[in-house]
Design a protein around this nucleic acid. Structure first.
Lengths: 134, 134
DNA sequence: ACTCTCGCAACTAACGTTGTTACAAGACGA
DNA sequence: TCGTCTTGTAACAACGTTAGTTGCGAGAGT
């Protein structure tokens, strides 16, 4: 699939949890609803747990739950937790060998970094609670 | 390699041409300088030709040349010619089935589109002539 | 004990990108 | 006209990334 799908899965799941913050959901439930696989769910939500957005418990009544108030979780938090870095400029491993190439890379990287900043800025304006189907 | 490399190759080549606008260069020369393959060069530069930035000629004195004044070619022109669409949101082929998923997709797509606009805006500020190694 | 859950590692499959080979078609000069 | 240089294009291999899948171990709870 696309680069997008991890972010989609994460947001989708969090948004559902935001509507019912105390309910514990298993990976299997989530996978079922999202049309994917429990292992994939654990992979993605594991990132969110590392970032402090979710908690997980093993055992009978185990599963996933929000770790914080949904009003305090922005789209940017999710984006950053996954560190997708949509705006990728390859880190130019080779020594430039051509000053033009070097200058171009610097220029483009600069713009990309700026743009990624503003993307994050923009995502930070919305919390997961605020997105709702009409 | 990375998503980035087509854009890098295109910009690198155009920048060199901008410094010597009347010289005709073969794909082999360009590939050699960029450390890649003539076929790859033709693939990438072919896009630029379709966009009206370059011309190509077959035969003995054939090769590639700028189609326009280098001062009139911006980084955005190159980016758009390649239609890389760095900011990809998958076009959600499936019917949503879940209104939350739908709303999220709309929200995220909206932000992404905005961001891509501002990237292009930003790239439009610089012409290929203006980038130079110090 | 038994069962349910997450955690994790390993493997497969699909996809996109680059690189490579091969060949056809057009342009030019001898 | 013939040979040679070039682009144009198709087909294929190589590689990396991602999602999906299977299997097994480790905790938690009954």
């Amino acid at each position: 699939m696309k680069r997008n799908s991890r972010l989609s899965l994460a947001l989708h799941t969090l948004r559902h949890m935001a509507g019912n913050p105390d309910r514990v959901q298993t990976s299997a439930d989530i996978a079922d609803h999202a049309g994917t696989n429990p292992v994939v769910v654990r992979r993605v939500l594991g990132r969110l747990r590392e970032a402090g957005l979710l908690t997980s418990e093993k055992g009978h009544a185990g599963g996933w739950k929000l770790a914080r108030a949904p009003e305090s979780i922005t789209l940017a938090d999710v984006y950053l937790a996954l560190d997708e870095s949509l705006i990728a400029t390859a880190p130019q491993e080779q020594p430039p060998a051509c000053s033009i190439e070097h200058a171009l890379h610097r220029r483009v990287s600069g713009v990309m970094k700026e743009i990624e900043e503003s993307l994050i800025e923009r995502l930070r304006e919305t919390t997961i609670s605020e997105v709702r189907g009409e």
